[in-house]
Amino acid sequence: MPLPTYALGAMEASVYAPEVFARGLPSVLQPAHLSEGDAGAAGSTANAAAPLLSLHGIGLAFGGVVALADIDLSVRSGEIRAIIGPNGAGKSSLINVISGVYRPDRGQVRLAGVGYAQVPTQRLAHLGVARTFQNLALFKGLSVLDNVGSGLAYKVRSNFAGQVLGIGRSRGERYDFLSCTDQILEFLDLTAVRDRLAGTLPYGLQKRVELARALVAEPRLLLLDEPMAGMTPGEKSEMADFVRAARDRFSTTVVLIEHDVGVVMGLSDRIAVLDYGRKIADGTPDEVRNDQRVIDAYLGVASDNEALSRDEARAGI
Protein backbone atom coordinates (compact mmCIF):
# COMPACT_ATOMS: atom_id res chain seq x y z
CA MET A 1 0.00 0.00 0.00
CA PRO A 2 1.60 3.31 -1.01
CA LEU A 3 1.94 5.50 2.02
CA PRO A 4 1.84 9.24 1.40
CA THR A 5 4.24 9.53 4.25
CA TYR A 6 5.71 12.94 3.74
CA ALA A 7 2.28 14.55 3.53
CA LEU A 8 1.06 12.73 6.61
CA GLY A 9 4.18 13.73 8.45
CA ALA A 10 3.57 17.33 7.56
CA MET A 11 0.01 17.14 8.83
CA GLU A 12 1.05 15.53 12.05
CA ALA A 13 3.65 18.13 12.68
CA SER A 14 0.87 20.49 13.66
CA VAL A 15 -0.87 17.97 15.89
CA TYR A 16 2.15 16.73 17.76
CA ALA A 17 4.07 19.91 18.08
CA PRO A 18 7.70 19.13 17.50
CA GLU A 19 9.88 19.75 20.46
CA VAL A 20 11.89 22.61 19.19
CA PHE A 21 14.81 24.45 20.57
CA ALA A 22 17.03 27.18 19.38
CA ARG A 23 20.48 25.68 19.67
CA GLY A 24 21.83 22.54 18.13
CA LEU A 25 25.40 21.52 17.66
CA PRO A 26 26.60 19.92 14.42
CA SER A 27 27.27 16.26 14.89
CA VAL A 28 31.02 16.67 14.48
CA LEU A 29 31.10 18.63 17.71
CA GLN A 30 29.53 15.82 19.67
CA PRO A 31 31.70 14.73 22.59
CA ALA A 32 33.88 11.83 21.67
CA HIS A 33 33.55 9.94 24.92
CA LEU A 34 29.97 8.95 24.08
CA SER A 35 30.88 6.65 21.27
CA GLU A 36 33.40 4.99 23.54
CA GLY A 37 30.74 4.49 26.20
CA ASP A 38 28.43 3.04 23.60
CA ALA A 39 31.05 0.67 22.35
CA GLY A 40 31.65 -0.54 25.89
CA ALA A 41 27.94 -1.13 26.45
CA ALA A 42 27.60 -2.92 23.15
CA GLY A 43 30.60 -5.05 23.94
CA SER A 44 29.18 -6.22 27.21
CA THR A 45 25.93 -7.34 25.61
CA ALA A 46 27.31 -8.70 22.41
CA ASN A 47 27.20 -12.22 23.72
CA ALA A 48 23.62 -11.83 25.07
CA ALA A 49 21.64 -10.96 21.94
CA ALA A 50 21.50 -8.45 19.16
CA PRO A 51 19.63 -5.35 20.27
CA LEU A 52 15.89 -5.42 19.57
CA LEU A 53 15.97 -1.78 18.57
CA SER A 54 18.90 0.35 17.60
CA LEU A 55 19.23 3.83 16.19
CA HIS A 56 22.22 4.83 14.12
CA GLY A 57 23.12 8.45 13.53
CA ILE A 58 19.54 9.73 13.62
CA GLY A 59 19.28 13.38 12.61
CA LEU A 60 16.04 15.36 12.34
CA ALA A 61 15.43 19.04 11.76
CA PHE A 62 12.27 21.10 11.45
CA GLY A 63 13.21 23.85 9.09
CA GLY A 64 16.36 25.31 10.56
CA VAL A 65 15.67 23.91 13.99
CA VAL A 66 17.62 20.78 14.79
CA ALA A 67 15.51 18.44 16.89
CA LEU A 68 17.82 15.43 16.90
CA ALA A 69 21.49 15.39 16.03
CA ASP A 70 23.35 12.16 15.38
CA ILE A 71 21.59 10.03 17.97
CA ASP A 72 22.76 6.47 18.56
CA LEU A 73 20.78 4.28 20.86
CA SER A 74 20.52 0.57 21.45
CA VAL A 75 17.77 -1.21 23.33
CA ARG A 76 18.29 -4.76 24.51
CA SER A 77 15.53 -7.26 24.51
CA GLY A 78 13.60 -7.30 27.77
CA GLU A 79 15.00 -4.15 29.33
CA ILE A 80 13.27 -0.99 30.45
CA ARG A 81 15.10 1.76 28.66
CA ALA A 82 14.38 5.32 29.65
CA ILE A 83 15.07 8.44 27.65
CA ILE A 84 15.09 11.55 29.77
CA GLY A 85 15.97 15.14 29.23
CA PRO A 86 14.76 18.66 29.91
CA ASN A 87 11.88 20.21 27.96
CA GLY A 88 12.59 20.43 24.28
CA ALA A 89 15.45 17.97 24.40
CA GLY A 90 13.98 15.96 21.52
CA LYS A 91 12.58 13.04 23.48
CA SER A 92 9.18 12.97 21.80
CA SER A 93 10.78 13.53 18.41
CA LEU A 94 12.85 10.45 19.06
CA ILE A 95 9.79 8.35 19.88
CA ASN A 96 8.07 9.70 16.79
CA VAL A 97 11.07 8.67 14.71
CA ILE A 98 11.07 5.19 16.23
CA SER A 99 7.35 4.78 15.55
CA GLY A 100 7.59 6.19 12.05
CA VAL A 101 5.49 9.30 12.62
CA TYR A 102 8.50 11.39 11.63
CA ARG A 103 10.96 10.52 8.91
CA PRO A 104 14.49 11.27 10.06
CA ASP A 105 16.67 13.35 7.76
CA ARG A 106 19.64 11.13 8.43
CA GLY A 107 20.34 7.78 9.98
CA GLN A 108 18.63 4.47 10.31
CA VAL A 109 16.29 2.71 12.72
CA ARG A 110 16.98 -1.01 13.09
CA LEU A 111 14.10 -3.03 14.43
CA ALA A 112 14.77 -6.70 15.17
CA GLY A 113 17.64 -6.68 12.72
CA VAL A 114 15.85 -4.91 9.85
CA GLY A 115 16.91 -1.38 9.00
CA TYR A 116 14.46 1.35 8.03
CA ALA A 117 15.00 4.87 6.77
CA GLN A 118 11.46 5.46 7.99
CA VAL A 119 9.64 2.90 10.08
CA PRO A 120 6.40 2.00 8.26
CA THR A 121 3.73 3.28 10.63
CA GLN A 122 0.98 1.22 9.08
CA ARG A 123 2.94 -1.99 9.69
CA LEU A 124 4.12 -1.06 13.16
CA ALA A 125 1.68 -3.32 14.95
CA HIS A 126 2.64 -6.24 12.72
CA LEU A 127 6.26 -5.63 13.64
CA GLY A 128 5.33 -6.03 17.29
CA VAL A 129 5.65 -2.38 18.24
CA ALA A 130 3.02 -0.51 20.23
CA ARG A 131 3.12 3.00 21.63
CA THR A 132 1.27 5.47 23.77
CA PHE A 133 1.09 9.20 23.24
CA GLN A 134 2.15 12.14 25.33
CA ASN A 135 -1.19 13.84 24.82
CA LEU A 136 -3.87 11.24 25.27
CA ALA A 137 -4.81 9.64 21.99
CA LEU A 138 -7.77 7.54 23.04
CA PHE A 139 -10.88 7.12 20.92
CA LYS A 140 -13.27 9.21 23.01
CA GLY A 141 -16.42 7.85 21.42
CA LEU A 142 -15.61 4.22 22.19
CA SER A 143 -15.97 2.38 25.47
CA VAL A 144 -12.89 1.37 27.45
CA LEU A 145 -13.40 -2.20 26.26
CA ASP A 146 -13.52 -1.15 22.61
CA ASN A 147 -10.58 1.21 23.00
CA VAL A 148 -8.41 -1.50 24.44
CA GLY A 149 -9.68 -4.08 21.97
CA SER A 150 -8.84 -1.78 19.06
CA GLY A 151 -5.24 -2.67 19.81
CA LEU A 152 -6.06 -6.03 18.24
CA ALA A 153 -7.51 -4.50 15.07
CA TYR A 154 -4.34 -5.15 13.08
CA LYS A 155 -4.95 -8.90 13.36
CA VAL A 156 -8.52 -8.80 12.05
CA ARG A 157 -8.90 -10.79 8.85
CA SER A 158 -12.67 -11.00 8.53
CA ASN A 159 -14.40 -8.53 6.24
CA PHE A 160 -17.26 -6.24 7.13
CA ALA A 161 -19.93 -8.44 5.56
CA GLY A 162 -18.88 -11.39 7.70
CA GLN A 163 -18.92 -9.18 10.77
CA VAL A 164 -22.36 -7.78 9.98
CA LEU A 165 -23.84 -11.21 9.42
CA GLY A 166 -21.83 -12.79 12.24
CA ILE A 167 -20.41 -15.56 10.08
CA GLY A 168 -17.00 -16.94 9.17
CA ARG A 169 -13.86 -15.72 10.88
CA SER A 170 -15.61 -12.87 12.64
CA ARG A 171 -17.04 -15.12 15.37
CA GLY A 172 -13.69 -16.41 16.49
CA GLU A 173 -12.25 -12.93 16.28
CA ARG A 174 -15.02 -11.57 18.46
CA TYR A 175 -14.27 -14.26 21.02
CA ASP A 176 -10.54 -13.48 20.96
CA PHE A 177 -11.34 -9.78 21.17
CA LEU A 178 -13.34 -10.23 24.35
CA SER A 179 -11.06 -12.71 26.07
CA CYS A 180 -7.78 -10.87 25.34
CA THR A 181 -9.26 -7.51 26.19
CA ASP A 182 -10.85 -8.65 29.42
CA GLN A 183 -7.57 -10.21 30.52
CA ILE A 184 -5.68 -6.98 29.98
CA LEU A 185 -8.40 -4.96 31.68
CA GLU A 186 -8.13 -7.20 34.69
CA PHE A 187 -4.34 -7.09 34.63
CA LEU A 188 -4.37 -3.28 34.71
CA ASP A 189 -7.26 -3.14 37.17
CA LEU A 190 -9.63 -1.48 34.70
CA THR A 191 -12.49 -3.98 34.84
CA ALA A 192 -14.65 -1.60 36.85
CA VAL A 193 -14.70 0.95 34.02
CA ARG A 194 -14.95 -1.61 31.21
CA ASP A 195 -18.11 -0.19 29.67
CA ARG A 196 -17.55 3.51 30.32
CA LEU A 197 -16.84 5.83 27.41
CA ALA A 198 -13.12 6.47 27.42
CA GLY A 199 -13.59 10.22 27.13
CA THR A 200 -15.48 10.35 30.44
CA LEU A 201 -12.71 8.84 32.58
CA PRO A 202 -10.36 10.83 34.79
CA TYR A 203 -6.97 11.61 33.33
CA GLY A 204 -4.94 9.03 35.21
CA LEU A 205 -7.28 6.24 34.20
CA GLN A 206 -7.21 7.36 30.58
CA LYS A 207 -3.43 7.06 30.65
CA ARG A 208 -3.82 3.52 31.95
CA VAL A 209 -6.38 2.69 29.26
CA GLU A 210 -3.87 3.82 26.69
CA LEU A 211 -1.29 1.52 28.23
CA ALA A 212 -3.82 -1.30 28.07
CA ARG A 213 -4.51 -0.60 24.40
CA ALA A 214 -0.81 -0.80 23.66
CA LEU A 215 -0.35 -3.95 25.72
CA VAL A 216 -3.29 -5.95 24.44
CA ALA A 217 -1.41 -6.97 21.32
CA GLU A 218 1.45 -8.22 23.54
CA PRO A 219 4.07 -6.21 21.66
CA ARG A 220 7.77 -7.05 21.63
CA LEU A 221 8.56 -3.37 21.94
CA LEU A 222 6.48 -0.89 23.88
CA LEU A 223 7.11 2.83 23.44
CA LEU A 224 5.74 4.98 26.24
CA ASP A 225 5.71 8.72 25.63
CA GLU A 226 5.54 10.34 29.06
CA PRO A 227 3.19 7.77 30.61
CA MET A 228 3.26 9.59 33.94
CA ALA A 229 2.93 13.18 32.75
CA GLY A 230 0.51 15.14 34.87
CA MET A 231 -0.01 12.43 37.45
CA THR A 232 0.10 12.65 41.21
CA PRO A 233 3.05 10.95 42.95
CA GLY A 234 0.77 8.10 44.00
CA GLU A 235 -0.47 7.56 40.45
CA LYS A 236 3.09 7.72 39.20
CA SER A 237 4.34 4.92 41.40
CA GLU A 238 1.24 2.90 40.52
CA MET A 239 1.95 3.42 36.83
CA ALA A 240 5.60 2.44 37.36
CA ASP A 241 4.41 -0.78 38.97
CA PHE A 242 2.16 -1.48 36.01
CA VAL A 243 4.98 -0.89 33.54
CA ARG A 244 7.27 -3.21 35.48
CA ALA A 245 4.54 -5.86 35.77
CA ALA A 246 3.80 -5.61 32.05
CA ARG A 247 7.47 -6.13 31.24
CA ASP A 248 7.64 -9.17 33.50
CA ARG A 249 4.43 -10.73 32.33
CA PHE A 250 4.72 -10.25 28.57
CA SER A 251 8.55 -10.02 28.46
CA THR A 252 8.08 -6.81 26.56
CA THR A 253 10.94 -4.44 25.93
CA VAL A 254 10.01 -0.97 27.11
CA VAL A 255 11.30 2.34 25.86
CA LEU A 256 10.07 5.08 28.12
CA ILE A 257 10.22 8.82 27.96
CA GLU A 258 9.79 10.63 31.20
CA HIS A 259 10.21 13.98 32.84
CA ASP A 260 10.24 12.80 36.42
CA VAL A 261 13.82 11.69 37.00
CA GLY A 262 13.04 10.13 40.37
CA VAL A 263 10.50 7.65 38.98
CA VAL A 264 12.76 6.79 36.07
CA MET A 265 15.75 6.02 38.25
CA GLY A 266 13.85 3.36 40.14
CA LEU A 267 12.16 1.88 37.09
CA SER A 268 14.72 1.68 34.32
CA ASP A 269 17.58 -0.64 33.59
CA ARG A 270 19.42 1.88 31.44
CA ILE A 271 18.89 5.56 30.83
CA ALA A 272 19.83 7.79 27.93
CA VAL A 273 19.86 11.52 28.54
CA LEU A 274 19.10 13.97 25.75
CA ASP A 275 19.78 17.66 25.78
CA TYR A 276 19.26 19.97 22.84
CA GLY A 277 18.84 17.00 20.53
CA ARG A 278 22.10 15.35 21.45
CA LYS A 279 22.72 12.39 23.67
CA ILE A 280 24.79 13.61 26.58
CA ALA A 281 24.83 10.49 28.71
CA ASP A 282 23.87 6.84 28.53
CA GLY A 283 24.16 4.19 31.19
CA THR A 284 22.72 2.67 34.31
CA PRO A 285 20.74 4.91 36.66
CA ASP A 286 23.73 5.26 38.96
CA GLU A 287 26.08 6.26 36.17
CA VAL A 288 23.62 8.79 34.84
CA ARG A 289 22.88 10.23 38.25
CA ASN A 290 26.52 11.08 38.83
CA ASP A 291 27.25 12.36 35.34
CA GLN A 292 28.27 16.01 35.45
CA ARG A 293 26.74 16.76 32.05
CA VAL A 294 23.35 15.46 33.20
CA ILE A 295 23.48 17.54 36.33
CA ASP A 296 24.39 20.56 34.24
CA ALA A 297 21.60 19.93 31.78
CA TYR A 298 18.98 19.70 34.50
CA LEU A 299 20.25 22.36 36.87
CA GLY A 300 21.88 24.72 34.41
CA VAL A 301 25.51 25.70 34.29
CA ALA A 302 26.80 28.78 36.04
CA SER A 303 29.28 29.68 33.36
CA ASP A 304 26.53 29.66 30.75
CA ASN A 305 24.62 32.25 32.70
CA GLU A 306 27.70 34.31 33.19
CA ALA A 307 28.43 34.18 29.51
CA LEU A 308 24.86 35.20 28.82
CA SER A 309 25.05 38.16 31.16
CA ARG A 310 28.36 39.18 29.63
CA ASP A 311 26.70 39.10 26.23
CA GLU A 312 23.88 41.21 27.51
CA ALA A 313 26.28 43.63 29.03
CA ARG A 314 28.13 43.89 25.76
CA ALA A 315 24.87 44.45 23.91
CA GLY A 316 24.05 47.17 26.41
CA ILE A 317 27.28 48.96 25.63
Binding site: E12, F133, K140, L142, G149, A153, R174, A214, A217
Partner: peptide
Amino acid sequence: RLVSSQTGRNFIAIRDNETAARIIGIP
Protein backbone atom coordinates in the same frame (compact mmCIF):
# COMPACT_ATOMS: atom_id res chain seq x y z
CA ARG B 1 -24.86 -4.51 13.16
CA LEU B 2 -22.11 -2.81 11.17
CA VAL B 3 -21.51 0.07 13.56
CA SER B 4 -21.20 -2.29 16.50
CA SER B 5 -18.82 -4.59 14.63
CA GLN B 6 -15.03 -4.34 14.42
CA THR B 7 -15.40 -2.33 11.21
CA GLY B 8 -17.69 0.13 12.97
CA ARG B 9 -15.19 0.50 15.80
CA ASN B 10 -12.48 1.15 13.22
CA PHE B 11 -14.65 3.92 11.76
CA ILE B 12 -14.96 5.59 15.16
CA ALA B 13 -11.25 5.13 15.86
CA ILE B 14 -10.35 6.92 12.63
CA ARG B 15 -12.82 9.68 13.43
CA ASP B 16 -11.51 10.21 16.95
CA ASN B 17 -7.77 9.96 16.34
CA GLU B 18 -6.44 9.07 12.94
CA THR B 19 -2.78 8.95 13.93
CA ALA B 20 -3.41 6.60 16.83
CA ALA B 21 -5.62 4.47 14.59
CA ARG B 22 -2.86 4.14 12.03
CA ILE B 23 -0.25 3.30 14.64
CA ILE B 24 -2.26 0.53 16.24
CA GLY B 25 -2.60 -1.02 12.82
CA ILE B 26 -6.07 -0.10 11.60
CA PRO B 27 -5.88 0.06 7.79
